[in-house]
């Protein structure tokens, strides 16, 4: 529990920042120059909820063993419900068009994250493969180090020759 409480503030700040960035982009697209303080407090509330829940779902402090797929579902379903509830309660959008814009922002953000991850995976993969090839060539040298016949001579003949 102590470890859990130590890690939660980092997650809260991460999700609050994501909320702030998404909200700012949304407002810029909507042509709004200022953000009301209430919205910032709402962001902090949502950040606190998502941050704590993400540490609960993905962290090893409370749930030590669970597959990543199950953890993802454990995180996504309650958070989707929470976001839907907060959107209705806090009246985030006045029209369905605004909801569509939020959805598009999230979709673009998601696609951007995937693109960045894919590029990073490709670069890392190239590095991993180079290291693998180096290991393979090193190992094949060791493997080819089979016993070799270096010398084959007759000691008796040499001795006889020396005597003569």
């Amino acid at each position: 529990m102590k470890e859990f409480l130590k890690k939660v503030p980092d997650k809260i700040s991460l999700y609050t920042t994501i909320y702030m960035v998404a909200f700012t982009v949304f407002n810029l697209l909507n042509g709004t120059d200022s953000i009301p303080t209430v919205k910032l407090l709402q962001g902090l509330f949502i950040g606190a909820c998502i941050g704590s829940w993400s540490e609960f779902s993905f962290g090893k402090c409370i749930i030590s063993e669970m597959s990543l797929r199950k953890r993802t579902w454990l995180f996504v379903i309650p958070i989707s419900l929470l976001l839907f509830a907060t959107a209705v309660i806090f009246q985030w959008a006045a029209s369905p068009n605004d909801y569509l814009k939020v959805f598009c922002i999230l979709l673009l953000y998601w696609l951007f994250c995937i693109l960045v991850l894919e590029i990073s995976h490709l670069a890392k993969g190239r590095h991993y493969t180079i290291k693998l090839k180096a290991y393979q060539s090193e190992s094949s040298h060791e493997a080819s180090d089979a016993p070799q016949l270096v010398t084959a001579y007759d000691v008796t003949d040499n001795k006889n020759g020396a005597d003569k």
């Binding site: 991850l117 995976h121 490709l122 993969g125 991993y128 493969t129 693998l132 290991y135």
Partner: peptide
Amino acid sequence: LQKIHALKPDY
């Protein structure tokens, strides 16, 4: 390991 062609990190 000798028979691996390539490696790539995944999700």
